[in-house]
Write a protein that binds this DNA or RNA. Structure first.
Length: 247
DNA sequence: AAGGGAGTCAACCGCGTTGTA
DNA sequence: CTACAACGCGGTTGACTCCCT
């Protein structure tokens, strides 16, 4: 048995650690033939020396068809930020609104980008300086991304949205995201607000927007763009997104 | 070139929930 | 109704990579 980088075999004899291509192939084959579920059976019958849990996780987070790889789009990031402000660490709920993304991915993204780090001591002056420089660089990148996103959303709001051919996939993704938001997320958001219309209540409910506007807490740099009232602008943009006006 | 810190991501663990016998 | 197994979720950890000094 090959032991990969410090991982190896558990006390009960089951393998743990990174999956090999062969293991992936076996799991893929078995699940596509027999379907998901009964993971402990999958582990045994597929000839995998893994726990059922491990098989399920590998399938859900990596092998399942339709999963998106690569960086989250600015739209997805915005949605994560907003939904996290509503629901907190309900990663699986948030993931359900983002087709092709897993709770693990979203959780990692959030921890990486927004988790507040413990304050460093004076003895860590040098790394701090470095971190600051990196932060500045990231900030620049995020601002560029944000400007792009803002531009696109403004076009959407003005009803002048033309999907470039290369972005046809993104447009389809946004369709799916909005459908999910309407079907799964909005009913939760408005379950105690039956008397108002959906779009009105979205724009009016300070509670719903509150989380997004507390982004100072998590070092999001949306509010550093000069010349724009970001709170209002993005609030309107996301509201129009929820209304389906981008279509 | 080497060492070390920070960032990232895949995977594990523990626990609560749900389903079933 | 109860016990047990399976599942799902959120938190945490370990290893790898990148970048800086």
């Amino acid at each position: 048995m090959v032991v990969v980088g410090g991982w190896g075999v558990r006390e009960d004899g089951l393998r743990k650690g990174p999956w090999t291509a062969e293991e992936d192939r076996l799991l893929n084959e078995y699940v596509s033939m027999h379907g998901e579920g009964r993971w402990s059976t999958v582990a045994k019958c597929a000839g995998l020396n893994r726990s059922g849990k491990s098989c399920r996780l590998r399938w859900v987070n990596y092998l399942k068809p339709g999963l998106k790889k690569g960086q989250l789009t600015p739209q997805e990031q915005s949605i994560i930020i907003e939904l996290h402000s509503l629901w907190g660490n309900k990663w699986s709920m948030i993931a359900r609104c983002l087709p092709g993304r897993t709770d693990n991915e979203i959780k990692n993204y959030w921890r990486t980008h927004f988790k507040i780090k413990p304050k460093s001591s004076r003895s860590e002056e040098k790394p701090r300086t470095r971190a600051l420089r990196r932060q500045q660089f990231r900030k620049q990148q995020q601002q560029q991304e944000y400007q792009q996103q803002l531009h696109q959303l403004q076009q959407i709001e003005e009803g002048d949205y033309r999907v470039p051919l290369a972005q046809e996939d993104d447009k389809q993704d946004m369709d799916i995201i909005c459908t999910n938001l309407e079907e799964q997320c909005l009913p939760v958001m408005f379950q105690e607000d039956h008397d108002t219309t959906m779009s009105d209540s979205i724009v009016d409910q300070e509670g719903i927007w509150g989380g997004l506007w507390n982004l100072d807490d998590v070092h999001v740099h949306l509010d550093h763009t000069p010349g724009t009232n970001n709170k209002t602008t993005i609030q309107n943009q996301v509201a129009s997104l929820f209304r389906g006006e981008y279509k």
